[in-house]
Amino acid sequence: MNPFHYERADNAAAAVALLAQSPTGTFLGGGTNLVDLMKLGVAQPELLVDVSRLPYDRIEPLVDGGLCIGAMVRNSDLAANRTVRTRYPMLAQALLAGASGQLRNLATTGGNLLQRTRCVYFQDASKPCNKRVPGSGCPARAGYHRNLAILGASESCIATHPSDMAVAMIALDATVRVLGPHGERIIPLTEFYRLPGDEPQRETVLEHGDLLTAVDLPPLPFAVHSRYRKVRDRASYAFALVSVAAALDLDDDGTIRDARIALGGVAPVPWRARRAEEMLRGAPATEATFRRAAEAELAAAQPLPGNAFKLPLARNTLVRTLLDLTRDVTDVTEGATR
């Protein structure tokens, strides 16, 4: 770990101004990922601006019926929030599927969105990695890529985004509030992440000095019937091989009115499954429909030998999650009419 300067900002504007002066500086939230990367020599910031105590630690209703989640809200607090648990169950489930209790107590909402890939080559400063050292090469393609991307990857990078929370948020059409050197702006989460292309080092549309202050969730009433299903190599405390965040809105006759679906563990970004959503709208909520939708979404997949299993795994997990959701919705509807 290199020596670094540490500053604690009194307010967001001061934090942004501080960081603007340090080209290699970065904001410090919970530190659960950044500090590891600093120890490993992967991240070498000259300046850490601690934003974890800025007053963005509230979860508050929005006038449109949505929810505003402060960027410094801890993952464990967000998962335990009653509104999140009842109106956006997929988000609470995603948070609880991530990391460990201790890490969730520290990790912040903003930091979770901005965590880095756990690709073993990115995390080992002695090895090439185009994301860490642009142009140095990607050993993962010929090497160990069991947990890397089958969708949205490029020749230069096949890393996966590790967050569970972000998968649920992107399915929920969340937007991100950003305070930058030139003022505040709002970015839909679906436009927040960048695919690697030939610049895998640029993971989001943020500019240096931009500070996440909040994540807004739209009302989305049918998200009350939503699920997050995570498949991993052990029962707990592992990154997703494949995960599915899904919400279904069904007519009384079992026709799908609307759907929100995102996949985790399969792409360099939390993967919004728009193609699958399109195929579901207006179709009957049957296994055959779900299977067609899953296969349409995964048609563009480019698996490698070591991660080809993710293709059937993602398909099966998506189909089963949608079937489980259909049963959730139907059970509630039937319960109400009885």
């Binding site: 756990r118 073993v120 995390q123 090895k127 050993p139 010929a142 090497g143 190599d233 707990s236 990154f239």
Partner: peptide, 20 residues
């Protein structure tokens, strides 16, 4: 390629957790 065990932390070298 490197002659190296690349799964060299507890995130990549899995041991059973309590939940397992």
């Amino acid at each position: 390629q490197f002659g190296d065990y690349v799964t060299h932390d507890f995130a990549s070298y899995h041991i059973a957790t309590n939940a397992d």
